[in-house]
Design a protein around this nucleic acid. Structure first.
Lengths: 122, 122
DNA sequence: AATATTTTAGGAATCAATCCTAAAAGGCGG
DNA sequence: CCGCCTTTTAGGATTGATTCCTAAAATATT
C-alpha cells in the first residue's frame, strides 16, 4: 500500500460522508499537493474491486464512495445529492429476490427525498 | 410535437427494450438520416421531464430509457447491461419508506444478475 | 403571406473517468 | 546499503456520454 493509496483510504474511512472522487482529490491534495487526479481514480477503483469500500453511482452526478462496504440502501437528496446510509429491515428484499428464481448477485436501493437543509433553503 | 420528437417517442414505445440514447439515435436515423444526436438527447430529456418516459441511470454505462413510467424495480445483467422490468410485490417498500418518517419522493431498485445469454456465453 | 417563436442540425464544448508514458518508489536477495 | 525487477505515480492526452451554441429551418401567429 503506497502513501497515496493510504491517504485516499483514510479520507474515506474518516467520516461517513459519501464523497465524490473530486472531493477526495481536493481533500487529499491538501496533504499531498503532487497527487494526481488519475491516481485517485485508479486507487478508488482498486479499493472498490477489493471490496474495501463501496461505490455509489448517482443519477446525473459523479459517483460517490462509501466506507461501509456491506450492501445497504441509501437515502439521497434530489437537490444537493447528499447521501445517507439506511439500515435495511432484516432481509426485506430476500424473499422478493428468491421469488425471481434467478441468481441475484447484488442489489441497489435508493430512496429519494429532499433533505432538511434543502427544504429549508427553498 | 415535432416529427423528430414523435419518432423518438414511437421508438421507445414500440418495444419493452430499455435502450440507450445512442441506440435510439441509430434507430431513428434509419428513418430520418438528418436527425442530430443533440436532438435525441434534448427530446429524451424533455420526455422524461414531462413524465412520458422513464430514465434509468446505469453504473458505468450510458443511461437507458423506459416506456413504462410508473416506478418499478429492474433486473440488470452485470455483463451486457440488458434490463428487464420487474413487478414489485404489492407495496413491498412502502412500510419501509414510511418508517423513515421522511417524505420519500421516489425510489430506485435494481437487482443484478447475469442473464441467461451471458451465462451461456461464459 | 409576413412576422414571431420554437426547434433543429451540426459541430464545438464540457465533465467525469480512463489511458499513456517516462520517471519515481517499492520490494528483495545479498 | 546496492543493483535489479515490478509496481505505482504524475501529468497530461484521450475517451465517451452528454450538453451547449448558433445560424438555418420549421412551426405557429396574425
Amino acid at each position: 500500500m503506497t502513501r497515496q493509496r493510504q491517504l485516499i483510504y483514510d479520507i474515506i474511512m474518516a467520516e461517513p460522508e459519501h464523497r465524490t472522487a473530486e472531493e477526495i482529490y481536493d481533500l487529499a491534495r491538501a496533504q499531498m499537493p503532487s497527487l494526481a487526479r488519475g491516481t485517485v481514480y485508479r486507487n478508488l477503483g482498486l479499493l472498490v474491486g477489493e471490496g474495501q469500500i463501496g461505490k455509489l453511482e448517482m443519477p446525473d452526478a459523479p459517483a460517490r464512495y462509501d466506507r461501509e462496504r456491506r450492501p445497504h440502501p441509501h437515502l439521497v437528496c434530489q437537490k444537493c445529492g447528499k447521501v445517507e446510509d439506511l439500515t435495511m429491515p432484516d432481509d426485506l428484499l430476500r424473499p422478493f429476490a428468491l421469488s425471481l428464481g434467478e441468481d441475484i448477485t447484488g442489489y441497489e436501493l435508493k430512496l429519494y427525498h429532499i433533505c432538511p437543509a434543502c427544504r429549508k433553503r427553498a
